[in-house]
């Protein structure tokens, strides 16, 4: 095959690392492809949406989820790196939670997939801690004064996910129908679940 060689020094560094680690027998290109396929196809916010939908429809599951996130998502078949110390924080009419990782963009991969660019951006990481209400309003989420905003900064190995409130308009729907309404931003806490 003919193609232009990479001249980006970062692409070259990555290629050199893969080449030498492959020569050492530590990785294979196929294994790396498999991991990437897994993250492209099997891991994403649709997993978290199923978790939230289950919690909304099954009070006992909701209790287990809030008590031990890792074990509760494992019940639905989810797990893997960055999910081992999952803490699920629940939104209520009085409390709104939002998640950040100020130092390195940690994120609960098994339930949300890989983080969007804005989550990694220095301005989100610094500002959501300093002026959460303002940043949330810039995302289009205006919260009443009386609602307490809690910002959860992932540290060490803890990863956070928000359990959003179920809108009254979605009352009575089944788990699958509910899951279709739950998107990533609501599980990070920069949005509410829409009707």
């Amino acid at each position: 095959m003919s193609h232009e060689h990479e001249t980006d020094p970062r692409a070259i560094r990555a290629e050199a690392l893969e080449t030498l680690l492959t020569e050492q027998g530590l990785v294979t290109p196929e294994a790396i492809d498999g991991i990437l396929r897994h993250y492209e196809q099997d891991v994403g916010p649709m997993n978290g949406a199923r978790v939230v939908a289950r919690a909304w429809t099954d009070p006992a599951y909701r209790e287990r989820l809030l008590a031990d996130g890792y074990s509760a998502i494992a019940e639905l078949g989810f797990g893997g790196p960055q999910g081992e110390h999952l803490v699920v924080v629940e939104n209520t009419p009085q409390v709104h939670n939002v998640v950040v990782c100020t130092l390195c963009s940690c994120y609960p991969w098994p339930v949300l997939g890989l983080p969007p660019a804005w989550y990694k951006d220095p301005s989100y990481r610094s500002r959501i801690v300093r002026e959460p209400r303002k940043v949330l309003s810039e995302f289009g989420l205006e919260l009443p004064e009386e609602v307490e905003v809690r910002v959860w900064d992932s540290s060490a190995e803890i990863r956070y996910m928000v359990l959003p409130e179920q809108p009254a308009s979605l009352a009575g729907l089944g788990e699958e129908e509910l899951a279709a309404h739950i998107d990533r931003d609501a599980m990070i806490g920069v949005a509410k679940v829409g009707p």
Binding site: R10, E15, E18
Partner: peptide
């Protein structure tokens, strides 16, 4: 970029 996914996968 492709290299970003490769280094992630490695």
């Amino acid at each position: 970029e492709p290299w970003e996914s490769r280094i992630f996968g490695i």
